[in-house]
Structures are given as structure tokens and as C-alpha cells.
Write a protein that binds this DNA or RNA. Structure first.
Lengths: 187, 187, 187, 187
DNA sequence: TATGAATGAGCCTTCATTCAT
DNA sequence: AATGAATGAAGGCTCATTCAT
């Protein structure tokens, strides 16, 4: 009964993204993902060697999309305030939903998985990417501060998203004020 | 001849706190907790009906201790800046380690558990307790803002604690600046 | 529904012995063993950490019984011919059936398992135990020869047992002639 | 555009022989064989309907080669001792390695497979072929004895090959003495 | 009340086999 | 005829929970 699946990898990634987002890493099981996609479990393993690696791919894929959008921002404007505003908006929107497929995660939320080098790596990349953006817009430039800004911004988005899912504007407005009042942006 | 266990509940809670903190909710198993305490698995179930409820109790216990300390702060001083500084310090220290037993957690970090009403409840309590404190020290008083402040402060502490575990002073200093630059404290 | 199982380990070992003997290592699965014993799979894992270790235990247990019987032989007689005859008989009978539970195995018959150190170890013990007995009854004493005698005797018993299961006497008679014509026994 | 594979069957057989020899029947999987040959899994199934049948073919092919060599021996000499010596040598060498591709097997070593009629059949053929040779060189001719001689010789070669892989000469010398001391060869 | 062996559903992963291309 | 992605049953193992003692 083997059929030919179009974009199998993409489909798996999509379903997995949604399911991991909805149920969490542990509760989303391989059969669930298989059922949702209509792709056999064994087939999933043709594309991702373990459940963990699938999860990591989901994470990477999601964030890479976001990174691309962030780059565009500071390539198109010089205004620090605008960069900050748009950065927060992009992060918020992307974390909120990924092509209609469900919430996106902050890796730190995944307890023992956090010990996995690949996941640590994603975390690090996210943080340093954001820190780089902050270095463009802050007058007083300090890598330690920028890193902490990045770290706290991400989790703050995550928590507001979860706590007030239908208050996007208020959440973003709060986050912007928070960030901008702290950093004296370059004039 | 069953032995009588002194403070069984307390002992279980202690070991569980440490173990959940070290390994996460899923990886810490009941046998582990039993072994660490020296109390049989079955006995643990005499005190806590499920693993989840045990986890919830750990969370509650931990935060109740913290709440008590927070109360003391604003009972003893009027200075808004001092209250803020001490609030952050207490939160940080308590989240950092609970009576030498290990890290303490932010509920949100526990993915699917978050859907549990009891856990949502703890979250809510933590947030509104903090928001109340903020209402004492902020000039411009808005419950929505205060809640968001509480939410982001908690997760920010959590993330800095995880990312820079040996930089307590720097972390706290950053958090204080962040919070105080945002809120114009009552003079 | 936990009940108290008498001699759980022994029962598991018995059923496993029979099942491994009947179906081979791969075809005998844990559920099979569980069903035969009436002991839950999880319980089996309380006694043996892996299927492989269970198998190894079966092997060890079986051979230890045999070793004990072999010792008795040369403690009770000096006559080389008698020792040889009885050694073969004991080996044959024990390999043929273990307390009514089924055939017993020669480790070498288990292909890739043979690479397991524990299994290699059992093999080595079997061989050197037999070689020691041969050193008692052979005039011309050479450890290399004795080892090869042991090795070939064991597999020869195994193969005759399998090929002519109902010809015990003929098999033993053949094996005895084979062995004794080769070794000039001490007078 | 499917490529045409020259000697596909032969190539598959070669790789399979090597792989079954190295890893055993269970551990050598179809993908492994496919990879080694460079022939797709599906193609292998065009030549051999199941893994088991492939294994059986490997066995048959190997032994047929050997049978041909054995025939040559007694067509070229009358001397019983020489026939015996050469028979053992051929068996040993062929079991040791087949055209540089790896060890060859004794069917009995494959536990549950032994129940397969085809495998039983190969076993029977091997044994009766050898027994026939023995009937040529033994004075006292008894088919039961000759069969047992054949059976034990094969497994003895197998076990010595495995136990002392680098002692070919010693192994053969031992086997020859063993066999010849038992059978009073025709003068 | 304390104990911890027993339970078994459930989960990840493997791999012989199939068949659309 | 050749390909190799797709299939899904099956198997080893885990672990929260129960209950006879």
C-alpha cells in the first residue's frame, strides 16, 4: 500500500508543530502525529530519527522563519524605535501562531529537554540574534545587558501570550514600553 | 510492624521539591522520590493521591513560603524603591533555592500540566499577589499593567536564573533597573 | 490487583527456560513469558533488567545445576572410564531436559548474542569445567586438546539431541566411543 | 530508467552471505544487504520472495559449492586416510570463508529457523552427503553411525572455527585425529 | 499506617514487505 | 526490471498506581 507522499517532511513538521504546541512534548505521541498527518509512524522515522530530533526540527524550523523576518526589519529602517517596535511585533506574531498551525514554543519551557545540546543551541541562537539587534539600537552598548534583554523579552512575550491570548495589542504595547523605557535608544 | 514516620508529608515534599527541580516533572519518578525519602511509594500515595497532586503541593508549598516573606517586606517599609528591590531579591532567592533543596519552578514551564486547574490557580495567585504589591508602589495604578508586570517579572527571574546561574547580583541589578525604569514609583 | 507471587523469580526462570528452548531467543517474547507464568511483564522486569539478562540468567542457572552434578562424579569415583561415561550421561540428560521444562541450549547456538561478554563467559566456563574433568582422566594431558575435546563434546551432544531426540542410548553410546577412542585414558 | 543489473542474484547472494555471516540472521537486515550490494530492497524481493528464503538460498549456495569439492576428492583418490583428511580440510576451509566473503554457517546455529522445512532439508542433505563419504572409507559400515559422525563433525568444525579462529592447523589436526581414531578405516 | 511487589496500558522504535513510479 | 519511500504490526521497556500483607 505504499503511496507517494508529497512534501512528507513538510507535512510532518506542520502536524508536529501543531501537536507539540497543543499538547506539549510528552503528551504529543508519535501515533498522534502519524494520525494527524495520515502518514505512517514508520514513515516519520524515515525523516526524523527520533521523536526528540523531530521536536528539535520543529523548533529550528519555526525560529529560522522568524530570524529571516527579523533581518528584514533592520535592513529596511534605521530608526531605533521603529526597529524595536517591529521586532517585538514580529516575535509576538510568530510566537503566537505559525502559519495558522498553532502556538510556538520557547525552548526553556521544556524542562529536561533543556539539557539537550541541540536545544541549548537553539536557545543560544535565539538570544544572540536578538542581542545583536539590540546592539544596533541601544546607545549604551553592553553585551551582558543585551543578552538579558533578549532573554527576558522572549519569555515575557511567551508569558503574556499565554496569560492574555486575546489582548495582542495591549501585550505588545506593554512590552514596547517596558523595553524602550529601559534602553535609552540611540537618537 | 509498620514504622511510624515523623513528618512524612514534609519529608516527601522536600525530596520531591529537590527531585522535580533537578530532573523535571516527567523524569523525576515516584520511585526516585521514594528512594530519596526512604519512604515507600505506597506511603507517598497515602499523603498525595497522584503524582500530579504531589507536584502541585510542591509548587504551593514553595510559593506560600515566598508569599509570607513578601508580606513582611511591605509591612516593614514604606519606601517604594526599597519594596521593589527587596521583592525582587526575595523572589530571586526563593526561586533560586528552597531551603538548600534545589531550584524552584515557574509553573508555566510545565507544558501540558498548565491545563490543570490547580496549576492555573497557583499561577493566578502568584501573579495577583505580586500585582498587589506593585499597586502599593506605583503612582499610575492600573491592574492590567500590574498583572503584566508581575507575569513578566516572574518569568524574567526564571530565565536569568537558568541562563546565568552564577551571576545573581548582575541578574538582580538588571531586573531592578528594568522594573523601576518602567514604573514611575510613587515619590 | 497486586498479588503476592511465590517464587516469582523461579517461576519466571522456569517459563523462560521452556520458552527460550522451544522458540529460540528471538521468537520467545516477553509477553509470551508473562502469559505462561501468569506474571505481568512489568514484574518480570523487577527481576531481570532486560530480556537479554533474563536469557543469560536462564543459561547460567541451567549450567550451574549441571556443574554441580559433574563435580559429584569425580568426587565419587577414580575410574577414568566411569568418569567419562557418567560425565557424558549427565551432560546429555541435563541438556535434554531441565526438570521437565524443556531442552537446554548451547550458548554458541545464539548467533549475535555470542558477542555479549556474559555469554562468552558462560561458554568459557562450560568449556574449562569440562576440560578440567578431562585433565583428570587423560594420560597425555594437553590443555589445548582438552579444550577442544570439551568444545566438540558439547556441540556433539547438542546436535545429536536435536537430530535423534528419541535415541538417547544410541547417542550416548556413540559419544562415549568417540571420546574414549580418542583419549587414551589413564589406566 | 531502471538500470540493468548484471548478475543481480549473484551479487545479492554474495553480500547476504557476508552480512549474515558477520551479524547473524536477525541483525543483518534487508536494508543492510541492499546498501552493501547497491541494489534496491525492492529488487532483492524480485529475486528472493522473503528474507528467510534469501537466507536459505545463501545456505544452499554455499553448501552446493562445498559438495562439488567433496565429490572431487573421492573421485581422485582411493586412500581412506587421504579422503578423510581432505574432506575435513575442504569442510573447514569452506566453512571458514566463502570466496573471501565471510564465515559460513551451520544451519543448526539458527534456532527457530531450524523448524523451517527447507532448512531441515539442507541439514539433512549435508549430513547424508558426508555420511556417504564415510561409508566409502569405513570398514564397519553402519548408516546410523555414519550419520552421527557427519553431524558431530560438522558442528565440531563450527565450534572450533569460532573458538580458535586463528588456529586452523591445530583445529584440523585435532579433528582428523578425532575422526580417524574412531573409525577404523578400511585398509 | 507503612510497605513495595505486582500490574498492564502505553509509548518509542524497528524492519520485513509492498507497490506506485 | 529496478527503485526506495511508505507501511504498520510487533516488541522491548517504563512507570503511575494499586493492594495484599
Amino acid at each position: 500500500m505504499p503511496k507517494i507522499i508529497k512534501d512528507a517532511e513538510k507535512q510532518i513538521l506542520q502536524s508536529a508543530t501543531e501537536l507539540f504546541g497543543q499538547h506539549g512534548y510528552h503528551s504529543a505521541d508519535m501515533k498522534m502525529i502519524s494520525n494527524k498527518t495520515g502518514i505512517a509512524v514508520g514513515t516519520i522515522y524515515n525523516y526524523f530519527p527520533t521523536k526528540k530530533k523531530l521536536f528539535i526540527s520543529v523548533l529550528e524550523k519555526s525560529w529560522n522563519d522568524t530570524f529571516r523576518k527579523l533581518e528584514d526589519i533592520y535592513l529596511q529602517t534605521d530608526d531605533p524605535a521603529a526597529i524595536l517596535q517591529q521586532t517585538i511585533e514580529v516575535l509576538y506574531s510568530d510566537m503566537e501562531q505559525r502559519t495558522g498551525l498553532g502556538k510556538i514554543f520557547f525552548p526553556s519551557a521544556y524542562e529536561e529537554l533543556l539539557k539537550d545540546p541541540d536545544i541549548i543551541n537553539i536557545n543560544t541562537t535565539i538570544v544572540s540574534t536578538l542581542a545583536d539587534i539590540f546592539s544596533l539600537i541601544r546607545k549604551n552598548n553592553d553585551v551582558n545587558i543585551n543578552n538579558r534583554l533578549a532573554e527576558t523579552l522572549i519569555v515575557s512575550i511567551y508569558v503574556l501570550l499565554t496569560a492574555h491570548p486575546h489582548k495582542k495589542e495591549d501585550n505588545i504595547s506593554f512590552l514596547y514600553k517596558m523595553a524602550s523605557s529601559f534602553m535609552e535608544t540611540k537618537k
